[in-house]
Protein backbone atom coordinates (compact mmCIF):
# COMPACT_ATOMS: atom_id res chain seq x y z
CA UNK A 1 0.00 0.00 0.00
CA UNK A 2 2.23 2.72 -1.28
CA UNK A 3 -0.56 5.16 -2.01
CA UNK A 4 -0.29 8.57 -0.46
CA UNK A 5 3.36 7.98 0.26
CA UNK A 6 4.25 11.25 -1.39
CA UNK A 7 1.22 12.94 0.08
CA UNK A 8 1.88 11.58 3.55
CA UNK A 9 1.18 14.38 5.98
CA UNK A 10 1.21 17.47 3.85
CA UNK A 11 -2.31 18.69 4.22
CA UNK A 12 -2.57 20.95 1.14
CA UNK A 13 -1.49 18.00 -0.92
CA UNK A 14 -4.13 15.84 0.76
CA UNK A 15 -6.84 18.36 -0.08
CA UNK A 16 -5.65 18.56 -3.67
CA UNK A 17 -5.60 14.80 -3.96
CA UNK A 18 -9.11 14.65 -2.57
CA UNK A 19 -10.39 17.18 -5.10
CA UNK A 20 -8.66 15.37 -7.94
CA UNK A 21 -10.01 11.96 -6.96
CA UNK A 22 -13.13 10.55 -8.55
CA UNK A 23 -14.88 10.26 -5.20
CA UNK A 24 -13.71 13.61 -3.85
CA UNK A 25 -14.89 15.38 -6.98
CA UNK A 26 -18.38 13.96 -6.69
CA UNK A 27 -18.57 14.75 -2.98
CA UNK A 28 -17.74 18.39 -3.81
CA UNK A 29 -20.25 18.49 -6.67
CA UNK A 30 -22.90 17.09 -4.34
CA UNK A 31 -22.03 19.48 -1.51
CA UNK A 32 -22.19 22.51 -3.80
CA UNK A 33 -25.45 21.17 -5.24
CA UNK A 34 -27.06 20.82 -1.83
CA UNK A 35 -25.97 24.33 -0.83
CA UNK A 36 -27.43 25.62 -4.10
CA UNK A 37 -30.68 23.90 -3.11
CA UNK A 38 -30.60 25.95 0.07
CA UNK A 39 -30.31 29.05 -2.08
CA UNK A 40 -33.29 27.92 -4.17
CA UNK A 41 -35.41 27.64 -1.05
CA UNK A 42 -34.60 31.16 0.16
CA UNK A 43 -35.02 32.55 -3.36
CA UNK A 44 -38.40 30.88 -3.71
CA UNK A 45 -39.50 32.13 -0.30
CA UNK A 46 -38.67 35.67 -1.42
CA UNK A 47 -40.41 35.23 -4.76
CA UNK A 48 -43.57 33.94 -3.17
CA UNK A 49 -43.97 37.40 -1.61
CA UNK A 50 -45.25 38.39 -5.06
CA UNK A 51 -48.50 36.73 -4.02
CA UNK A 52 -48.67 38.96 -0.96
CA UNK A 53 -48.43 42.02 -3.16
CA UNK A 54 -46.15 44.40 -5.00
CA UNK A 55 -45.41 46.39 -1.85
CA UNK A 56 -44.22 43.41 0.17
CA UNK A 57 -42.16 42.06 -2.70
CA UNK A 58 -40.49 45.39 -3.38
CA UNK A 59 -39.78 45.96 0.30
CA UNK A 60 -38.12 42.57 0.49
CA UNK A 61 -36.06 43.28 -2.63
CA UNK A 62 -35.11 46.67 -1.22
CA UNK A 63 -33.96 45.16 2.07
CA UNK A 64 -31.94 42.57 0.21
CA UNK A 65 -30.12 45.04 -2.03
CA UNK A 66 -29.38 47.44 0.79
CA UNK A 67 -27.79 44.72 2.90
CA UNK A 68 -24.02 45.37 2.87
CA UNK A 69 -23.35 41.64 3.06
CA UNK A 70 -25.15 40.96 -0.21
CA UNK A 71 -22.06 41.18 -2.47
CA UNK A 72 -20.35 38.65 -0.23
CA UNK A 73 -23.31 36.27 -0.44
CA UNK A 74 -23.45 36.75 -4.19
CA UNK A 75 -19.76 36.00 -4.56
CA UNK A 76 -20.27 32.84 -2.51
CA UNK A 77 -23.16 31.87 -4.72
CA UNK A 78 -21.14 32.39 -7.89
CA UNK A 79 -18.35 30.33 -6.31
CA UNK A 80 -20.75 27.47 -5.59
CA UNK A 81 -22.07 27.55 -9.15
CA UNK A 82 -18.57 27.55 -10.59
CA UNK A 83 -17.43 24.70 -8.34
CA UNK A 84 -20.49 22.64 -9.22
CA UNK A 85 -20.16 23.33 -12.95
CA UNK A 86 -16.40 23.00 -13.35
CA UNK A 87 -16.14 19.74 -11.42
CA UNK A 88 -19.18 18.31 -13.21
CA UNK A 89 -17.72 19.14 -16.61
CA UNK A 90 -14.39 17.59 -15.65
CA UNK A 91 -16.11 14.44 -14.39
CA UNK A 92 -18.24 14.24 -17.53
CA UNK A 93 -15.18 14.52 -19.77
CA UNK A 94 -13.38 11.84 -17.75
CA UNK A 95 -16.45 9.62 -18.05
CA UNK A 96 -16.50 10.03 -21.83
CA UNK A 97 -12.84 9.03 -21.90
CA UNK A 98 -13.56 6.02 -19.69
CA UNK A 99 -15.42 4.35 -22.56
CA UNK A 100 -13.61 5.26 -25.78
CA UNK A 101 -15.52 2.73 -27.89
CA UNK A 102 -19.24 2.70 -27.16
CA UNK A 103 -21.82 -0.05 -27.52
CA UNK A 104 -23.83 -0.64 -30.67
CA UNK A 105 -26.75 -1.62 -28.46
CA UNK A 106 -27.01 -0.27 -24.92
CA UNK A 107 -30.13 -0.96 -22.96
CA UNK A 108 -29.27 -1.31 -19.30
CA UNK A 109 -31.62 -2.77 -16.74
CA UNK A 110 -33.89 0.15 -16.04
CA UNK A 111 -32.13 1.77 -13.10
CA UNK A 112 -31.65 5.13 -14.76
CA UNK A 113 -34.33 7.77 -14.33
CA UNK A 114 -35.38 10.61 -16.65
CA UNK A 115 -33.60 12.94 -14.24
CA UNK A 116 -30.35 10.97 -14.13
CA UNK A 117 -30.22 10.62 -17.91
CA UNK A 118 -30.57 14.33 -18.51
CA UNK A 119 -28.30 15.86 -15.86
CA UNK A 120 -25.98 17.44 -18.44
CA UNK A 121 -28.82 18.78 -20.60
CA UNK A 122 -30.79 20.18 -17.68
CA UNK A 123 -27.55 21.57 -16.26
CA UNK A 124 -26.86 23.51 -19.46
CA UNK A 125 -30.49 24.68 -19.60
CA UNK A 126 -30.28 25.91 -16.01
CA UNK A 127 -27.03 27.75 -16.71
CA UNK A 128 -28.53 29.46 -19.77
CA UNK A 129 -31.59 30.36 -17.73
CA UNK A 130 -29.53 31.76 -14.86
CA UNK A 131 -27.64 34.04 -17.24
CA UNK A 132 -30.82 35.32 -18.90
CA UNK A 133 -32.63 35.51 -15.58
CA UNK A 134 -29.94 37.57 -13.87
CA UNK A 135 -29.53 39.80 -16.91
CA UNK A 136 -33.22 40.52 -17.33
CA UNK A 137 -34.48 40.62 -13.75
CA UNK A 138 -31.46 41.70 -11.73
CA UNK A 139 -29.63 43.99 -14.16
CA UNK A 140 -32.85 44.87 -15.98
CA UNK A 141 -31.48 44.34 -19.46
CA UNK A 142 -34.52 44.98 -21.63
CA UNK A 143 -38.05 45.27 -20.34
CA UNK A 144 -39.54 48.06 -18.30
CA UNK A 145 -36.84 49.79 -16.26
CA UNK A 146 -37.17 51.54 -12.93
CA UNK A 147 -37.03 51.04 -9.21
CA UNK A 148 -40.29 49.09 -9.09
CA UNK A 149 -39.01 45.54 -9.34
CA UNK A 150 -42.48 44.05 -9.04
CA UNK A 151 -43.67 45.98 -12.07
CA UNK A 152 -40.50 45.09 -13.91
CA UNK A 153 -41.01 41.37 -13.25
CA UNK A 154 -44.67 41.56 -14.25
CA UNK A 155 -43.58 43.28 -17.43
CA UNK A 156 -41.39 40.36 -18.32
CA UNK A 157 -44.01 37.79 -17.32
CA UNK A 158 -46.45 39.53 -19.63
CA UNK A 159 -44.27 38.31 -22.47
CA UNK A 160 -45.59 34.78 -23.06
CA UNK A 161 -42.30 33.58 -24.57
CA UNK A 162 -40.41 34.72 -21.52
CA UNK A 163 -42.91 33.02 -19.24
CA UNK A 164 -42.86 29.79 -21.21
CA UNK A 165 -39.07 29.74 -21.16
CA UNK A 166 -39.18 30.41 -17.43
CA UNK A 167 -41.51 27.47 -16.81
CA UNK A 168 -39.43 25.16 -19.02
CA UNK A 169 -36.24 26.19 -17.26
CA UNK A 170 -37.60 25.64 -13.77
CA UNK A 171 -38.91 22.32 -15.11
CA UNK A 172 -35.27 21.61 -15.92
CA UNK A 173 -34.39 22.55 -12.35
CA UNK A 174 -37.01 20.10 -11.05
CA UNK A 175 -35.75 17.32 -13.29
CA UNK A 176 -32.15 18.04 -12.26
CA UNK A 177 -33.13 17.89 -8.59
CA UNK A 178 -35.20 14.72 -9.02
CA UNK A 179 -31.88 12.94 -9.50
CA UNK A 180 -29.59 15.38 -7.74
CA UNK A 181 -31.00 15.39 -4.22
CA UNK A 182 -31.06 11.64 -3.60
CA UNK A 183 -27.84 11.26 -5.57
CA UNK A 184 -26.09 13.76 -3.30
CA UNK A 185 -27.21 11.85 -0.22
CA UNK A 186 -25.82 8.61 -1.64
CA UNK A 187 -22.58 10.44 -2.45
CA UNK A 188 -22.29 11.63 1.15
CA UNK A 189 -22.61 8.00 2.14
CA UNK A 190 -26.15 8.27 3.43
CA UNK A 191 -27.71 4.95 2.55
CA UNK A 192 -29.78 3.05 5.03
CA UNK A 193 -32.21 0.21 4.38
CA UNK A 194 -34.92 1.89 6.43
CA UNK A 195 -34.46 5.60 5.66
CA UNK A 196 -33.21 5.65 2.08
CA UNK A 197 -36.53 4.84 0.38
CA UNK A 198 -38.17 7.66 2.34
CA UNK A 199 -35.29 10.04 1.65
CA UNK A 200 -35.53 9.31 -2.08
CA UNK A 201 -39.22 10.15 -2.02
CA UNK A 202 -38.50 13.29 -0.03
CA UNK A 203 -35.89 14.31 -2.63
CA UNK A 204 -38.43 13.85 -5.39
CA UNK A 205 -41.07 15.77 -3.44
CA UNK A 206 -38.59 18.60 -2.91
CA UNK A 207 -37.86 18.72 -6.65
CA UNK A 208 -41.56 18.85 -7.46
CA UNK A 209 -42.26 21.56 -4.88
CA UNK A 210 -39.39 23.71 -6.14
CA UNK A 211 -40.70 23.34 -9.69
CA UNK A 212 -44.30 24.13 -8.74
CA UNK A 213 -43.28 27.05 -6.56
CA UNK A 214 -41.22 28.79 -9.21
CA UNK A 215 -43.38 27.82 -12.18
CA UNK A 216 -46.53 29.12 -10.51
CA UNK A 217 -45.24 32.71 -10.68
CA UNK A 218 -45.05 33.21 -14.47
CA UNK A 219 -48.15 31.07 -14.91
CA UNK A 220 -50.18 33.11 -12.45
CA UNK A 221 -48.80 36.58 -13.20
CA UNK A 222 -48.26 35.98 -16.90
CA UNK A 223 -51.41 34.16 -17.88
CA UNK A 224 -54.05 34.18 -15.14
CA UNK A 225 -53.76 37.36 -13.12
CA UNK A 226 -52.92 39.43 -16.20
CA UNK A 227 -56.46 40.43 -16.98
CA UNK A 228 -57.28 41.54 -13.45
CA UNK A 229 -57.39 45.26 -12.84
CA UNK A 230 -55.04 45.33 -9.89
CA UNK A 231 -52.15 44.13 -11.93
CA UNK A 232 -52.63 46.56 -14.78
CA UNK A 233 -52.79 49.54 -12.53
CA UNK A 234 -49.47 48.47 -11.04
CA UNK A 235 -48.02 47.81 -14.44
CA UNK A 236 -48.92 51.16 -15.84
CA UNK A 237 -48.34 53.44 -12.93
CA UNK A 238 -45.78 51.61 -10.90
CA UNK A 239 -46.29 51.40 -7.18
CA UNK A 240 -44.31 54.47 -6.30
Amino acid sequence: MEANANCASKSPCRVFEFLESSIGKKIMVAAAGILLCGFLVTHLAGNLLMYVGGEAFNRYAEALVSNPLLPLAEAGLVGLFLLHIVLSIRATLANRAARPEGYQVYKGKGARTPGSRTMAVTGILILAFVVIHVATLKYQVGGQKGPDLFAHVLGWFANPWYSIFYVLAVGGVGLHLSHGVQSALQTFGVNHPRYTPALRKAGLAFAILIFLGFASLPVYFGFIHKTADACCATMEGGSK
Binding site: S22, I23, K25, K26, A91, A94, N95, A97, A98, R99, G108, K109, G110, A111, R112, S116, M119, H179, Q182, S183, Q186, T187
Partner: peptide
Protein backbone atom coordinates in the same frame (compact mmCIF):
# COMPACT_ATOMS: atom_id res chain seq x y z
CA UNK B 1 -15.17 6.71 -14.86
CA UNK B 2 -16.79 8.71 -12.06
CA UNK B 3 -19.89 7.35 -10.41
CA UNK B 4 -22.92 9.57 -10.99
CA UNK B 5 -25.35 7.32 -9.13
CA UNK B 6 -27.12 5.93 -12.17
CA UNK B 7 -27.45 2.62 -10.29
CA UNK B 8 -27.16 0.46 -13.42
CA UNK B 9 -24.31 -1.41 -11.70
CA UNK B 10 -26.56 -2.76 -8.98
CA UNK B 11 -29.16 -3.76 -11.57
Amino acid sequence: GHCTNEYECEA
